[in-house]
Design a protein around this nucleic acid. Structure first.
Length: 576
DNA sequence: GTATCACAATACCGCACGGCCAACCGTGC
C-alpha cells in the first residue's frame, strides 16, 4: 500500500472520529498524520523496515502501529470497524457548506438521513426546523450548499489528477508491450479541476488483450468498471476513474490529439481540415480514403499548416488563428521561474524556518526568495506583530550574510482589512521590500463595496502584489462577489502585479482572466503560497494556469532577473 | 493521539460570525 492511500485512510479516520464526537485533539492527530505521510520524502516502506517511523515528529505509538499494519497487511482493523459505525453517505454530507460533523450527526440520529438526496428531500419537506439547533435559515443555507455540491461532485483537483495520472503512466511505461503512452484529456490541458484520468497508449494489435490484462490487474485499484481490448475503465480507491484507450501505433498521434480535446478545439480543427480537403478523426487524417502519414501530434498540426499548439491552450480561444499566422505565444515554463515571493515561515503559520526555505530556494536554482508571513490581523494564522517583524528582519539580515548566492527579500502578506486599508502603519509598511495584499475575512460584501475595498488597497503605494484575487477555493467555495475586470484594470494603472496562487485549491487568478490582465499590461507573479518547504514545488500548477492564460516570460514578474524585479519593487514603493 | 524541561498530567492557532434561542454552539478562516 502506498503512502497516498495511507494518507487518505488517516484523513477518513479523522472525519469518522469527528462524526463520533471524539476528542478534537485526537482527531487532529490523525489529520496531522495524514499530512505528514502525504508530504514525506523518505520511502515509507523503508522506514517501516528499519523501524524508524516514530522518529518522525507527529507520528507516535498509535499511528506507527497503524501504518505498520497497513503496509504489511494492506488493511487496518481499526479503520474497518470505525467505517462500519456509519453509512458511507454521511461522509458526502460533510462536503456540503455549513454542515459539520455535529449537524450531520443530528441529521443521521434524528431523521436517519444518510445521503445528499435524502437531505435535499428533508429540506424541501421542511423536516429540519423541528430539530434542536436547526431553523428556517439553516434549511435555506443547506439547500444552497446542496446546489453548490451538485456543481462540484465527481470532480477533482488537477494536483490529484496529475499525482495519480503520472503514477499510472509511469507504471504503464514499465510494460514492454506498450510503445507509447501519455495522459490526455483535461489533465493534459491542465484544467484546474478534472472529472477523470484519460490515458492513451499504443501497442501491436496482437498484444491488446495482454496490455489490458496488465492494466486491469494493477495493484491498488478499487474495481474494474469495464474491460475491452480498445478501452478499459477502472476506479481508484479514492473514487477517481481512470480510462485507458489502446490504439495501434500508427493511430497514436490522432488518438492522443482527439482525446486531449478540448471538444471545441477539435471541432474548429476538423472544420479547418475539411476546408483544406482533409478529414480528421480519432483514427487518422485522410485525403479521400487515403490515410496521411503522421508520426507525431506535431506532424498532424503541420499537415494542417499550423504551428504546434501546446495542449494547455487548446480551448478554441483563438489559438488556431494564432498558430496559422505564426503568432502563438512562447509560453512560460517552470524552468523560467527565477524566484518566489509568497512563502510563509514558522514566524506565522508556516512549518519551516526561514533558513530552510532559503536552502530550498537555492536547491531550485532561484536567484531570489521573499518571505511573506501573515500580518497581525490574521490571528488564526499567527500573524506578525511589529516586534516579530523587527526580529524577522534581523534574522533575514544575518541569513543574507551567510547565503550570498540568493537575494532574500523582506515581504509580508498583509490582510486587506474591511475598509481596504493595509494591516500596519505606513512606517511599518515602509520597512518591507514588497507587500502582498490578500483578503482573508469579511467575504460577504456586495459587489460595489468589495470592489471599492480592493481598489483602495491597490491604490496604496505600498501594495506590490494582489494575492488570490477572488478568494475562491476550488470544489468548495465560490469567489466573493467583485468586479474583477475593474480590479484588474486598477492593477494595470497602478502597476500592481496580480498573483497566480499555485496552491491547487486556489489556482487563481483564473486562467480565463489572465489574457485580459496581459492585454492591460498587468504583470503576474506565479506564487506557491507555501506553508512548508515542499509547498514551493506547487509552482508547477501555477505555471500550468499561466500557460493556459497565454502568459510569456515578459508577463511573469518572477521569471525576471533580480535587478529588474528589484527595480519594479522600488519603483512601485516610490510612486507617491 | 502526540509531545513534553514535572514521566503523570497537561496543552494542543484563537477569534468572528451566524443562527437559534435567550447565553451559546457550530462552522470556518
Amino acid at each position: 500500500m502506498d503512502k497516498n492511500e495511507i494518507s487518505r485512510i488517516f484523513e477518513e479516520i479523522g472525519v469518522l472520529m469527528e462524526l463520533k464526537g471524539e476528542n478534537p485533539f485526537k482527531v487532529r492527530a490523525y489529520y496531522n498524520g495524514a499530512r505528514i505521510i502525504e508530504l514525506m520524502e523518505e520511502d515509507l516502506h523503508q522506514l517501516v523496515e528499519e523501524n524508524r517511523l516514530h522518529e518522525i515528529e507527529g507520528i507516535g505509538k498509535a499511528l506507527e502501529e497503524k501504518i505498520i499494519e497497513l503496509v504489511k497487511t494492506g488493511e487496518l482493523e481499526f479503520y474497518r470497524r470505525l467505517k462500519e459505525e456509519f453509512p458511507e453517505g454521511l461522509l458526502e454530507l460533510l462536503k456540503i457548506q455549513g454542515l459539520g460533523p455535529k449537524k450531520v450527526r443530528v441529521l443521521y440520529d434524528k431523521l436517519n438521513i444518510t445521503s445528499v438526496e435524502e437531505l435535499e428531500r428533508a429540506c424541501l419537506e421542511d423536516k429540519l426546523s423541528n430539530l434542536k439547533g436547526f431553523g428556517e435559515k439553516t434549511t435555506k443555507k443547506i439547500l444552497e450548499g446542496i446546489e453548490n455540491y451538485k456543481n462540484f461532485s465527481g470532480q477533482y483537483l488537477i494536483s490529484t489528477g496529475l499525482a495519480y495520472g503520472n503514477e499510472m503512466v509511469k507504471v504503464l511505461k514499465t510494460n514492454p508491450l506498450i510503445k507509447r503512452v501519455s495522459l490526455a484529456g483535461s489533465i493534459r490541458r491542465h484544467k484546474e479541476t478534472i472529472k477523470d484520468i484519460d490515458i492513451i497508449a499504443s501497442c501491436d494489435e496482437d498484444n491488446r488483450l495482454a496490455v489490458m490484462d496488465f492494466f486491469t490487474s494493477l495493484e491498488g485499484i478499487k474495481d474494474v468498471k469495464e474491460k475491452g481490448i480498445t478501452k478499459s475503465s477502472l476506479r481508484l480507491p479514492m473514487g477517481i476513474n481512470v480510462d485507458l484507450r489502446l490504439v495501434g501505433d500508427g493511430e497514436y498521434p490522432n488518438a492522443l490529439q482527439h482525446f486531449t480535446g478540448s471538444k471545441e478545439h477539435n471541432t474548429a480543427l476538423r472544420q479547418r481540415a475539411k476546408e483544406m480537403g482533409y478529414k480528421v478523426n480519432e483514427y487518422g487524417i485522410f485525403k479521400g480514403d487515403n490515410p496521411q502519414p503522421v508520426k507525431t501530434e506535431e506532424d498532424l498540426y503541420k499537415l494542417l499548416q499550423l504551428d504546434y499548439i501546446p495542449p494547455e491552450i487548446r480551448e478554441n480561444n483563438g489559438e488556431i488563428e494564432a498558430a496559422e499566422k505564426g503568432n502563438l505565444p512562447n509560453l512560460i515554463k517552470t524552468s523560467d521561474i527565477k524566484g518566489v515571493m509568497h512563502i510563509h515561515s514558522n514566524y506565522s503559520d508556516g512549518h519551516n524556518t526561514i533558513e530552510e526555505l532559503v536552502q530550498k530556494g537555492i536547491s531550485l536554482g532561484f536567484k531570489y526568495i521573499g518571505i511573506s508571513d501573515h500580518s497581525r490581523s490574521a490571528i488564526y494564522a499567527g500573524g506578525l506583530k511589529e516586534e516579530d517583524i523587527k526580529r524577522q528582519h534581523e534574522e533575514i539580515g544575518i541569513l543574507q550574510e551567510k547565503y550570498k548566492d540568493i537575494v532574500i527579500l523582506k515581504g509580508i502578506e498583509s490582510d486587506i482589512l474591511a475598509d481596504g486599508s493595509l494591516d500596519y502603519s505606513d512606517e511599518v509598511l515602509e520597512s518591507f521590500d514588497y507587500i502582498i495584499g490578500s483578503i482573508h475575512s469579511n467575504f460577504s460584501m456586495d459587489i460595489n463595496t468589495m470592489t471599492k475595498r480592493l481598489i483602495k488597497a491597490i491604490n496604496n503605494r505600498y501594495l506590490t502584489i494582489l494575492g488570490h484575487a477572488t478568494g475562491r477555493l476550488l470544489l468548495s467555495r465560490p469567489s466573493y462577489t467583485l468586479d474583477i475586470e475593474a480590479v484588474i484594470e486598477a492593477c494595470g494603472k497602478n502597476q500592481v502585479a496580480i498573483e497566480i496562487n499555485s496552491n491547487p485549491h486556489r489556482l487563481e487568478l483564473d486562467w480565463r482572466m489572465c489574457r485580459f490582465a496581459k492585454e492591460r499590461g498587468v504583470f503576474i507573479a506565479i506564487e506557491p503560497d507555501a506553508h512548508r518547504v515542499e509547498g514551493i514545488d506547487d509552482i508547477q500548477y501555477g505555471v500550468g494556469v499561466a500557460r493556459k492564460g497565454w502568459l510569456e516570460e515578459a508577463n511573469v514578474l518572477n521569471s525576471w532577473e533580480t535587478d529588474k524585479v528589484l527595480e519594479f519593487l522600488r519603483k512601485r514603493k516610490s510612486n507617491i
